[in-house]
Design a protein around this nucleic acid. Sequence first.
DNA 1: TCTCCTTGGTCCTAAAATGTCCCGGGTAAA
DNA 2: TTTACCCGGGACATTTTAGGACCAAGGAGA
Lengths: 351, 351
Amino acid sequence: MRTILEMQKQLLPDLMEILKKRYTILHQILLSDVIGRRTLAVSLNMTERVLRAETDLLKAQGLIEIENIGMRISDSGRKLLEALEPIVKDIFGLSNLEERIQKAFGLRKVVIVPGDSEASPLAKKELGRAGAKALLGVISSKDVVAVTGGSTIAEVAEQLSPPGNLSLKQCWFVPARGGLGESLEIQANTIASGMAKRLGAGYRLLHVPDLLGKEAYESLVGDPNIHDIVEMIREARIIIHGIGDAMEMARRRKLEDSVVQDLQKEGALAESFGYYFDENGVVVHKMLTLGLHLDDIKSTETVIGIAGGKSKAKAILAVLKFGHEDILVIDEAAAEEIVEEIERSESRRAE
Amino acid sequence: MRTILEMQKQLLPDLMEILKKRYTILHQILLSDVIGRRTLAVSLNMTERVLRAETDLLKAQGLIEIENIGMRISDSGRKLLEALEPIVKDIFGLSNLEERIQKAFGLRKVVIVPGDSEASPLAKKELGRAGAKALLGVISSKDVVAVTGGSTIAEVAEQLSPPGNLSLKQCWFVPARGGLGESLEIQANTIASGMAKRLGAGYRLLHVPDLLGKEAYESLVGDPNIHDIVEMIREARIIIHGIGDAMEMARRRKLEDSVVQDLQKEGALAESFGYYFDENGVVVHKMLTLGLHLDDIKSTETVIGIAGGKSKAKAILAVLKFGHEDILVIDEAAAEEIVEEIERSESRRAE
DNA sequence: TCTCCTTGGTCCTAAAATGTCCCGGGTAAA
DNA sequence: TTTACCCGGGACATTTTAGGACCAAGGAGA
């Protein structure tokens, strides 16, 4: 059967464009909480006047509320957005990309958000929202969730809000691995506690100094408290992690030059939970710290990978080849690159 | 779940208006076979220029074909119209009315066509189309269909076209009852044969003089030929009948003054297949002729009532209260009146 | 208190939509 | 065959709308 939209398109050729436009505006307002007309116009690349015409209409439809402080989304607007999401995805052509990637790597689910999270902070916010939604979709009442650091996962934490129908009081949030040399705000510990607080869940932290010598490492492993929490981490039912570019992560973590050179020699492309992967998804280096082992990751029930930006595409691909992701949340920019790469390798195989 | 249509109504109220407009134009072209721009503009109450803009678009979309003889609908236009019908009904708000009436009288199906068939010949044509569609929806290969007279049912006959997937060669069309004093074109006999010819089915007629005396009646009943056809009529699986205003029918059939006065005294409101009903659906008078008895109607599998126009609302309501309709095909004007009446009686009951 | 950002109002211009008329051509009735 | 009519499409002036650019008043937050 032809979809309703397909039929309508025949009588209203520009239906899709308008739908997309209004959806985008409404969506932007949702993400911004409250926002003024001018600011919104700039961030949407529209002139103030045309935006105004649209917002007037949205207001007339009761989808947004306009006060002298700015515009905010109304309840019915929020509901409408939610209901409209799959449709708009279809129009944006993201459903296609999702299916493509999902099949290529045998994933359980792929979520692609519109835009480029590197270029637009709002796209990044949306990536966080999608990540939060994915997490809430799989979490249940007594889960242990291991989280990594990174700005993307931090954004996920920001966007988390407690689900209405489910108490998560008996959940635990833990960092996936100990100190990895990140700055405080985007450390795994910070994020784990942040998520737990937002969801009313418990959290336990793993305080491990960043640059750990062999001996210190051995002594920490022996500590009963540390041992306890590491045990908990290794039994996590859900892992939610970011994906980074290997070289950039090395730089950000101020790894020694010799290590960086080694990484480069080994062809390290991606980094995630302290492990470095080459283009085939093989681990070529690991940071010396406590927490999840590779084997734990392989046996974890749900691994959620979240990343965005065109430049992350290669890294995401590498981690996908590692082969233990279940749910992938990325942005349009990365998705397009990844699908291109899939197609290239397919045509190579066909030769 | 909210339908995609409701969401669109919220976000694209203006486009829904346009959709309605274009649908109406396309629909009108369908009903008119070929029609010129000016004529169409008049019948749609639009100025020539705006209509032209629309038809240009419809042409660009390949939904109509414009030749120097006029405009006609294309195949894809025809298909689109068919597919779009429920959607437009929803936008017109007719779905609501349909459901309302269907539930109030426990009918199997209610079809409402837009417009007022008393005011616009095209609405009447559409009523005929809908009636024809309803008939084709229930008919199967060896049915006997009893039809009444009247201009509405005549229009149904006009709009019938053989279904592609079903041979009706073994169907029979018969008049529901003998001569009732209608003019030739809208007599049941004429219509039955017309329908049969259009569908490639058989027909048998019942020639009974209009004003039948008691004795003549008795002798006719005894005639074996007449008896045969009456038997067939009484076994009809489908009845398709119009509904008329009692007084108007009495006038049209030139009933004697005394009879008319009796009818008025009894509160006769509606007429159908030669029976007169009061506002509670009680039969207060019947014409003396052969054919279907009341008991036959009650036991018939599918009774299809078709009527239109604001002034018919009361009559339709009376026949509905009689309580043996299965499928009702009416126009918007009548439907609105009927629903109003339903609401009035509901609020009376609530007091 | 002051500054910044908000909405809602206004004005003006360009552009699009619309009302109106006409022309050449083909159809169908006379 | 002729004639009268209706057809689509072209043309054009006019109206309406959309869009761009500002501005004033007001409230929130620093």
